[in-house]
């Protein structure tokens, strides 16, 4: 029913999607502690400690300096590049009091208002956004 699949071709195709980081095993490995740090913010007592002193809290986690800086800067595109996954990172922006729309819009280079207006008008068109090589 399903054609045999070359795992390298399967994974390689993900890099052909514009503006998208697919959460592959490589990213999951790279971002393991980053995502587990974000996950820790599910607990109220951890959120309180985090809000009291972000740097001290981050030092309890074996993150790379790049990951630490990106967390402090709330640079979500960079966090994706460093192995973050949006469902885990949502614990971080929820603690900041941001909704999904507010946080997600920061990755698009648009203002929240412009992003919301785009969504209300039917969302981002897939035209030209499906494939870098194929340009369709």
């Amino acid at each position: 029913m399903t054609d045999p699949r070359d795992i390298h071709a399967y994974l390689g195709a993900f890099d052909d999607i514009p503006g998208t980081r697919v959460y592959t095993a490589a990213r999951a490995r790279q971002g393991y502690h980053l995502n587990q740090f974000a996950m820790s913010l599910m607990k109220a007592e951890n959120r309180a400690r985090w809000l009291a002193d972000e740097r001290a809290y981050l030092n309890e986690w074996p993150l790379t300096p790049e990951q630490r800086d990106a967390v402090l800067a709330r640079d979500y595109n960079r966090l994706l590049d460093l192995g973050g996954n949006i469902y885990f990172l949502s614990k971080l922006f929820s603690t900041d009091g941001l909704s999904f729309v507010q946080a997600v819009s920061t990755m698009t280079g648009m203002s929240v208002e412009d992003y919301k207006a785009m969504m209300d008008a039917g969302g981002r068109s897939p035209e030209g956004m499906r494939s870098i090589k194929g340009k369709y």
Binding site: P18, T20, T108, G122, G123, R124
Partner: peptide, 17 residues
């Protein structure tokens, strides 16, 4: 159904698909 919550392509919707 269609949604993308991450990256510069976030907000993608494909009603036809």
């Amino acid at each position: 159904m269609s949604h993308q919550l991450q990256g510069p392509r976030a907000g993608l919707i494909n009603a036809e698909w």
